[in-house]
Design a protein around this nucleic acid. Structure first.
Length: 1167
RNA sequence: GCUCGGAUGGUGGAAUGGUAGACACGCAAGACUUAAAAUCUUGUGACCAUUACGGUUGUGCGGGUUCAAGUCCCGCUCCGAGUACCA
């Protein structure tokens, strides 16, 4: 009987369906194993031969584990929401649901032909309401959660409301959009709407005004991982930056856990590294820089007249004359000379304090009274003794000379000036301070407290950087990882989008700054990346160097990003290449800080060397100086240590139709979640899949897209026990905090408040699908406790690297959130992850002679002026063109002529010539009886329709069978490696299967015998068992296919037909080629399916060889081979080897210096 | 620029520091055929020699460690992937 793969495969596929061979249930008597493929987006093009690569690998692994006695979960489904179906809908009007359904059917048909062991009863589709109900459910939970940085956990937002009403933000460390500080009283005084607005700052799913990637062509925003090099990944349309109010997920809160979790998973280093870079942890410091200019203080506007021409000279209390016009000079000062003077005086004072000043400073410094106090601070030409900038309070201590009447008048005048500037002035005498400094400190504190409560009531609380009382109204914070370079700061730079730009731009510069801002805004992201030229504009303001007091010009430039750190940096041109380029361009000073470094041509960025020009850091190494500098910064209250993450929150809304609707409605402009009982909120029908005339997303076209919550009852708790099945884990209560919900009553869609018009992005549905497979039909929970605790997490996940920074981050985030909720029992969803390589296309070319319809074969083409043309790889076999098929392929080539080439014995046809090859002397005389051939050129390119290099798995299955396809995909090379698909080699594996078949059949006769296998047969088999077992566990499928070939070749030459051997061989082969294995398994008399056979174990006894062939080498070069019995001693081997006549030849009569004998390896004679 | 991979025959690729090129494809020669296909046998890194033998060389380049290096170490070159003003 011949190997009729078509008939066999069809028959067994039907048998598996009929017998539910691949259906799996939670069986606690067996260990579980969860093997998952990244589910596909069903595109209209169908599967090409590259898609099943990972599926075949995972199928082999699943079947292998099952044979080893595991209960294997191996499901499949579809990531069914997505842009292409919607784009198609816009063009054709066909509903995306229909497109998607058709594509899924096509995918399924293709997948079914390959013989996978999926449990299709567990299939999920992300666009199915029964599925996306749980996507919406998770979103509701995120909306009602906040993230506690201390607990490193998501928690119910109700808890936060309680905390706020009891103690305000005091003592809380919360993940948030903007830092806030308020007291319980302040919280309790707020209206419901204000409270909701504040809570939005903390929710894990929140509405935020963020810079988004806006893609005008697609009419939607995109996530960072959906954009590459300034264009959208889907479609390649330009993307611009725009500020919009969008739903976001607070992924950044999980950054530390996402980073740490990587240490516990078995992924490739490179993938973990990609995620580490994406999360981007960097340790550094936030540092505060005060402004030299008082422009940003809440000062009254400048008085009219005069002051322009007379820059203020410093006033100070030690008896110097005051300027005549000292009322209301509040205008920003850009006069460097003046500032230098002031700063020098301030410095001098600081190092030369009076006793009382010193005592008071000790009592006030470093936030001891809960407020940040500075000393010798310059205020509009005066030097204040102590100042709190946040509350605009100045504290003065009278020196000894203030006792005179004249001095008192001066002091009073000075006080009134300062008060006009918006400051409160507290004055203490030396005596008071010296007698009871604590009393004085308390008085100051009380005064500041009073001011706080008074001010907060009338104005919005000012954002603070961290903790209480450290915030500043004057100046700004920067983030740096190189605190050691603080003495090399020569300028400051703000991101153009920074809010500080508006505040810090002086009137003189306003126009120029505006021009610059407009210019940068117009640039698309792409242009900004492409354009490497240095641009920037001076803001007009100066910051004060926190150590030296030097004024530092504040610039604005787009090389600083608003989204990272604080959106402002300190410029250290000597040690940062970007700052260096900026400084060179604008002629700013460059101060080297490391001994011996040369900064005349480029900056010295390395973190090594000895510090110079750096005050207290001098002499330290950079590694010592970084912490030392931060210590000093903290000691002086100028800043604090901070770990920054690059990972940003995920923008979660899309202005598109084909996605999950948000379970959100709006009341008084504030979002509320719909009741969980009303899920799923189904995607409504629309007349067109385009934005509305008013620019709203397509859902704006839906009729009655509104929601009326059920009547309020007692404060509702969404996840109350009655909604939980009794087999469910008690999900931690992350209930609805709005008063609209009720567990017993059901809300109504179609009336009431407007629903959200955006839909969720592609990664929403794929973030928890692996959990749903565990319990896909449960309508009471995403996954039951039992199912989750049995299957736990994915043991093996196979998919492409392209999801490294998208799906694999979001999914881990989503799972960690569900873990915090108590829904998922494992913190990491994917224990082991293997990335299959890309299958590239291998294109073929024909060479058309210019302006003719004549084509010349590859090796003759250099004699002509030719144009290479892609030709369909399916009409080329082993690079030889099927000329008839080519003429029929395209009407244009119907009458094509060909110049063929003829192989010559002397010079065999070279193929694989890359199109640039110069070998051209291939023309050979026409030889009688030898056919000429048209040889095509080839190149490795992306597999795509336009290159005519797409190979369809259906065709392969048709011509060779699914088992051959499976084996050949594996045989192509290592799974993780990218490689081109070349159908040329497929005959080899097909031949192998035929040889295998012939071990069982001679003609139509079944020749299997029950005889005892020979030693050689057993050795061959057990070698294979050992090899294949190891190879599968190590994902080295290509070498196991080789091992099968070797074994079958050996058994063929041994003319083996022993059932004992062949039976085990079939079990080993079953994961790779399940159809033929199943067929022959039954042929030799088994009743049960081969899937439930037992994986054989190898027996070392059978592997023992009687003898070993030693390579005898001299000075490391192997010269000949000698066979020795396996138990030969080294002495015997040495003696025999040296006596061998060939050895004598190689030793040339010399005596060997040393003889190395490695048992079962080699003999090496050193001469 | 940074990070991570990789580089072995005409091709895909093997090789716990121990005979480089397993296993295949392709090609060549032969067998079987009226013929072709299929199948089978043999050969096949390069170079030199070929009258039996045999020899030289060889894993991107240059060094090093070792009795022994495709494999380990140092320095380069080239290719691929990811990322990109992340302070």
């Amino acid at each position: 009987m011949d190997y009729n793969f078509g008939e066999i495969e069809k028959r067994w596929q039907q048998f598996w369906i009929d017998h539910q061979t691949y259906k799996v249930t939670e069986d606690t008597t067996k260990p579980k194993f969860y093997v998952l493929d990244m589910f596909p987006y069903p595109s209209g093009a169908g599967l090409h031969v590259g898609h099943p690569l990972g599926y075949i690998a995972s199928d082999i692994f699943s079947r292998f584990k099952r044979l080893q006695g595991f209960n294997v979960l191996h499901p499949m489904g579809y990531d069914a929401y997505g842009l292409p179906a919607e784009q198609y809908a816009i063009q054709t009007g066909q509903h995306p649901a229909i497109t998607t359904k058709n594509n899924i059917a096509r995918y399924r048909e293709q997948l079914d032909k390959i013989g996978f062991s999926y449990d299709w009863s567990r299939e999920v589709q992300t666009c199915d309401p029964d599925y996306y109900k749980w996507t919406q459910w998770a979103f509701i939970k995120m909306f009602h959660s906040y993230y506690c940085n201390q607990a490193q956990q998501a928690r119910p937002i109700e808890e936060l409301i309680e905390v706020f009403s009891a103690q305000g933000t005091k003592g809380m460390d919360l993940a948030c959009t903007e830092p806030m500080n308020f007291t319980a009283e302040e919280w309790n005084a707020k209206t419901e709407k204000e409270k909701q607005e504040i809570l939005m700052n903390y929710r894990i799913a929140y509405l935020g005004d963020t810079m988004v990637n806006w893609c005008p062509a697609l009419g939607t925003v995109l996530a960072n991982d959906e954009v590459s090099e300034g264009v959208s990944i889907r479609g390649g349309y330009p993307v611009e930056q725009k500020k919009m109010r969008q739903w976001c997920l607070r992924v950044s809160a999980y950054a530390p856990r996402l980073l740490e979790g990587l240490d516990s998973v078995d992924w490739t280093e490179s993938l973990k590294e990609t995620q580490r870079n994406w999360i981007g942890r960097s340790e550094g410091a936030v540092m505060h820089f005060d402004l030299v200019s008082p422009e940003t203080s809440p000062f009254p506007p400048p008085a009219e007249g005069g002051e322009e021409t007379s820059p203020p000279t410093p006033l100070h209390k030690r008896g110097e004359s005051q300027p005549e016009n000292n009322k209301g000079f509040f205008k920003p000062t850009t006069n460097k000379e003046q500032w230098k003077l002031l700063i020098n005086i301030a410095k001098e004072y600081r190092s030369n304090q009076t006793e009382s000043e010193d005592i008071l400073w000790q009592a006030l410094r470093a936030g001891k009274i809960g407020y940040k106090i500075r000393r010798q601070h310059i205020v509009d030409g005066y030097i204040a003794d102590f100042i709190n900038l946040e509350k605009s309070v100045i504290i003065e201590v009278d020196g000894g000379i203030h006792l005179t009447k004249e001095q008192k008048e001066k002091d009073d005048f000075r006080t009134s000036v300062l008060e006009q500037c918006g400051f409160s002035v507290l004055r203490f005498t030396n005596q008071e301070v010296l007698t009871d400094v604590q009393l004085v400190a308390n008085k100051i504190k009380n005064f500041l407290d009073l001011l706080s409560s008074a001010r907060e009531k009338t104005s919005q609380s000012a954002p603070l950087s961290r903790g209480e009382g450290q915030g500043e109204r004057s100046g700004f914070d920067i983030f740096t990882t190189r605190a050691d370079t603080i003495f090399g700061v020569t300028f400051m730079v703000l991101a153009p989008e920074s809010e500080l730009v508006e505040q810090l731009t002086t009137d003189e510069q306003r126009e120029a700054v505006q021009v610059y801002l407009d210019k940068t805004k117009k640039k698309t992201e792409r242009e900004r990346i492409a354009d490497k030229s240095v641009t920037g504009i001076f803001s007009g303001s100066y910051a004060t160097h926190p150590f030296t007091g030097e004024p530092l010009p504040i610039w604005i430039s787009d090389y600083v990003l608003a989204g990272y750190g604080t959106g402002a940096i300190m410029g250290v041109p000597a040690h940062d290449s970007r700052d260096y380029a900026f400084a060179k361009h604008f002629n700013l000073p460059i101060v080297p800080l490391i001994e011996g470094c040369d900064v005349s041509e480029e900056s010295f960025d390395a973190k090594e060397g000895i510090m110079i020009n750096s005050g207290f850091l001098n002499g330290m190494t950079v590694k010592e100086a970084i912490p030392a500098a931060i210590d000093e910064v903290e000691k002086r209250g100028l800043g604090f240590r901070k770990v920054n993450y690059r990972l940003r929150d995920a923008i979660f809304s899309r202005q598109r139709y084909w996605g999950e609707p948000f379970p959100i409605y709006y009341k008084d402009g504030m979002p509320y979640t719909i009741s969980e009982n009303d899920l799923p909120l189904e995607l409504p029908e629309v007349d067109k899949f385009l934005p509305t005339e008013t620019g709203e997303p397509p859902l704006g076209r839906a009729k009655n897209w509104s929601y009326l919550p059920s009547a309020p009852s007692t404060r509702g708790r969404e996840s109350s026990d009655e909604t939980l099945g009794n087999n469910l884990r008690e999900v931690k209560d992350f209930g609805d905090d709005s008063s609209q919900s009720s567990p017993s009553l059901v809300g109504r869609v179609g009336e009431g408040y407007p629903l959200e018009l955006s839909t969720m992005p592609g990664f929403a549905g794929s973030s928890a699908y692996y959990l749903r497979y565990m319990d896909p039909h449960n309508d009471e929970a995403l996954v039951s406790r039992q199912a989750d605790e049995y299957w736990r997490n994915v043991d093996l996940y196979i998919g492409g690297t392209e999801h490294a920074t998208g799906h694999l981050i979001y999914s881990r985030f989503w799972n960690k959130f569900l873990f915090d909720l108590g829904v998922s029992c494992e913190e990491e969803p994917f224990k082991k992850l293997v990335n299959q390589g890309m299958i590239q296309g291998r294109s073929n070319f024909v060479y058309r002679i210019k302006d003719t319809n004549t084509f010349v074969s590859l090796n003759l083409k250099d004699q002509y002026d030719v144009t290479p043309i892609h030709v369909d790889v399916n009409i080329v076999h082993n690079d030889v063109l099927d000329i008839e098929a080519f003429r029929n392929w395209n009407p244009e080539y119907k009458n094509a002529e060909f110049i063929l080439e003829y192989p010559t014995p002397a010079l065999p046809v070279r193929e694989g010539g890359n199109p640039n090859s110069t070998s051209s002397k291939m023309s050979s005389p026409l030889v009688e009886g030898i056919e000429g051939r048209y040889i095509c050129g080839w190149a490795v390119e992306k597999m795509s329709k336009s290159m005519y290099n797409v190979v369809n798995p259906d065709d392969i299955v048709e011509n060779y069978g699914a088992d051959t396809l499976r084996l050949y995909e594996m045989f192509l090379g290592p799974l993780e490696q990218s490689k081109p698909w070349d159908t040329n080699g497929i005959d080899g594996v097909h031949r192998f299967l035929k040889k295998l078949w012939n071990l069982f059949y001679a003609g139509d006769e079944l020749t299997v015998s029950d005889e005892k296998p020979s030693k050689e047969e057993l050795r061959s088999l057990h070698k294979l068992i050992k090899k294949v077992t190891w190879d599968i566990e190590n994902f080295s499928f290509n070498t196991s296919v080789s091992a099968f070939m070797i074994c079958v070749n050996e058994l063929t030459s041994l003319k083996s037909n022993k059932k004992a051997v062949l039976s085990d061989l079939l079990v080993l082969l079953a994961p790779f080629a399940p159809h033929i294995a199943e067929e022959l398994w039954h042929v030799i008399g088994n009743q049960t399916t081969v899937c439930d056979a037992k994986w054989p174990e190898h027996n070392e006894e059978y592997l023992k060889e009687d003898s070993f062939a030693y390579a005898i080498s001299f000075n490391g070069k192997a010269r000949f081979v000698m066979e020795f019995p396996a138990d030969a001693t080294t002495q015997e081997i040495e003696k025999a080897a040296l006596e061998h006549p060939t050895s004598q030849k190689w030793m040339e009569g010399k005596t060997p210096k040393k003889i190395i004998i490695v048992p079962k390896k080699i003999v090496n004679v050193v001469i």
